[in-house]
Write a protein that binds this DNA or RNA. Structure first.
Length: 558
RNA sequence: UGCCCGAUAGUAUAAAGGUAGUACGACAGAUUUUGAUUCUGUUUGUCGAGGUUCGAAUCCUCGUCGGGCAACCA
């Protein structure tokens, strides 16, 4: 009997909290939520949060809502809502409900009225500058102004006037009456409602006052009976306020927990910076394959599986971090190696004539998914007298450990024959323009009687049947590990070579049937996927990630 | 310099007072009809100083360093 491996992965701190809450009977079921503001596209940092919230619920038999935190009409748009819904779905998660904080505007308004009635909120006529000054600084307490002592009746009346549009933007705000001398700035009578005569993407012109984050988020959690409200570290100082409102309003006690947001090396992660990259045309769009957005990663060829796996491996903690992008790439390759359909594509062709091969076409069989678990299959690739190999796979005067083709040397052509280079053809300027080789008829793949061992195996295509395709080779967008933390403007660190286009590469004919859903490995080159810019006669492929290449390092050493 | 978080190999992440482990990376080797994959091995760590304890990454104290907080943003 094999020993039972009770190798349980240890729990992260959120899992511990949930397990404890379930065990103690504090909750019978958990309900989490993913609460994006629809003011931009989701990025891989959000993927961490999505996987965390949905993952936690999935693990403990709970549910997760997708709730849009849409309380600022001037920044939010339906376009973003749509993209967010699609991204969550693509990642593989199904929300229990798709909700909007704006659905709760009336309830939120009534909660504010309740607070006023308890003498815990007041209408303040001060300007934002005055309020800022009166709040004091972290080292000096704030001071009350004369509006703080307005009567409940007066506040009720004024707040009603705010709602009915009697005042201009900025003329009045509603503030919670908490503690102006608190060492926690968030508690110094925070503004909870402001006047904004703006069109809201869902409620239109129905409202001219909108609740602030602190008076919308926690209350929405409570309305939905969210048990575990998980957010990022910068909201820690808001937690006392979150709890204060729950207590004073006497509503469902949701609890807030904070984790460290994801930072990835060689990219930036703030919506503001990403927006700049798009607006200032450093990239072409939000879904440019170089962007760390979910839509960008999707277009680049990342799989949901690999991203989920990645977020799983990085774990969750409360310390700031900068995750090495190579871990993301590892997770990607791990998935793609198993599930990508193999194809042969020559990027930079060098013509080869097999001088002793007849003028016929022979079909060679080759595996589609050599590492595939479930996926199986094979296909035929035409072989003929006139081929292309990769120019970099030939060297006239190779270094010691060069296992590829060179004058007099032999290599195998993948799934075909061993060939030997007899002659190098050059033009008048001495540039190599073709090779003449001979093949070893008894060395056919799968029926090799030659008894020869060769060190290298090359990919190739038959010239007559080759399909021209365009390749977009993407590389990291930034030259430095942490562009956001580097001196000066982060845009100074953009990698000028983040996109290389190969207009015409030569693919084996079966690639003409490529589809968007499939992932491909172009043998010995990298993983690719079909781009949406393709048209039937013109296929464009994005390089998702290259294969690991230890030869590059070896060659550099020499 | 008020309050609040945090600090374990290069990067992440475990060890809940009892042998500091894992992954990625790096390096070396084996296998290989992808210089891929796979496999094996190596390397490097508890921020500092005190204290409690038979025993401290873990508890306490004081430092140091990093991050956050003074938007009618979320």
């Amino acid at each position: 009997m094999a020993e039972i491996q009770a190798e349980e992965r240890s729990l992260n701190f959120l899992e511990e909290i949930v397990e404890e809450d379930l065990k103690s009977g504090r909750y019978k079921n958990i309900l989490t939520r993913f609460p994006p503001e629809p003011n931009g596209y989701l990025h891989i940092g959000h993927a961490k949060s999505i996987c965390l919230n949905f993952g936690l619920a999935l693990k403990y038999g709970g549910k997760t809502n997708l709730r849009f935190d849409d309380t600022n009409p001037t920044k939010e748009e339906t376009e973003y809502v749509d993209s967010i819904i699609e991204d969550v779905k693509w990642l593989g998660f199904i929300p229990q409900q798709v909700l909007y904080a704006s659905d709760y505007f009336e309830q939120l308004y009534q909660l504010a009225v309740k607070l006023i009635k308890k003498g815990l909120a007041y209408v303040d006529d001060s300007s934002s500058e005055e309020i800022a000054i009166q709040k004091g600084t972290p080292t000096e307490p704030g001071m009350a102004n004369r509006y703080r002592d307005r009567t409940v009746e007066e506040n009720l009346h004024l707040f009603d006037g705010m709602r009915s549009g009697q005042y201009a933007d900025g003329e009045k705000v509603l503030r919670a009456k908490v503690d102006l001398s608190s060492p926690n700035m968030q508690m110094r009578d925070p503004i909870i409602y402001r006047i904004k005569k703006a069109h809201h993407h869902r409620t239109g012109n129905q409202w001219c006052i909108y609740p602030m984050y602190d008076f919308a988020h926690g209350q929405s959690d409570s309305i939905e009976n969210i048990t575990h409200s998980i957010c990022t570290l910068e909201f820690i100082p808001h937690r006392p306020l979150y709890d204060w409102f729950i207590e004073k309003l006497d509503i469902f006690p949701s609890h807030q927990y904070e984790f460290a947001r994801l930072n990835l090396s060689f990219t930036v992660m703030s919506k503001r910076k990403l927006l700049q990259l798009v607006d200032e045309n450093y990239v072409q769009s939000w879904d440019d394959p170089r962007m760390p957005t979910i839509s960008g990663l999707r277009r680049r060829g990342y799989t949901p599986e690999s991203i989920r796996n990645f977020t799983d491996r990085i774990g969750v903690q409360k310390r700031d971090n900068l995750i090495d992008v190579s871990l993301l790439e590892f997770c990607l390759r791990e998935d793609l190696n198993k599930n990508a359909l193999r194809k042969m594509v020559v990027f930079d062709p060098l013509p080869v004539t097999i001088t002793n091969y007849p003028d016929t076409v022979e079909m060679m069989t080759t595996e589609d998914y050599p590492e595939g678990g479930e996926k199986k299959g094979s296909r035929s690739v035409p072989f003929s007298r006139e081929l292309f190999i990769e120019r970099e796979d030939f060297m006239e005067d190779p270094p010691k450990k060069f296992f590829r083709l060179a004058p007099g040397k032999r290599v195998r052509l993948k799934s075909a024959y061993i060939i030997q280079c007899d002659e190098v053809v050059k033009d008048s300027e001495g540039k190599i323009i073709a090779l003449n080789c001979q093949y070893l008829p008894e060395s056919k793949s799968g029926a090799d009687l030659s008894g020869l061992k060769v060190q290298g195996t090359l990919h190739w295509v038959s010239r007559a049947q080759a399909v021209p395709v365009t390749l977009r080779l993407y590389d990291r967008l930034f030259k430095v590990e942490n562009p956001a933390a580097s001196e000066g403007d982060f845009k100074e660190y953009i990698n000028p070579d983040s996109l290389e286009i190969i207009e015409k590469a030569y693919a084996e004919p079966s690639l003409s049937g490529a589809v968007m859903e499939e992932r491909y490995q172009f043998l010995r080159k990298g993983y690719f996927c079909l781009d949406k810019d393709s048209s039937p006669g013109h296929l464009i492929f994005n390089r998702t990630v290259s294969l690991k290449d230890t030869w590059v390092k070896e060659a550099k050493k020499a």
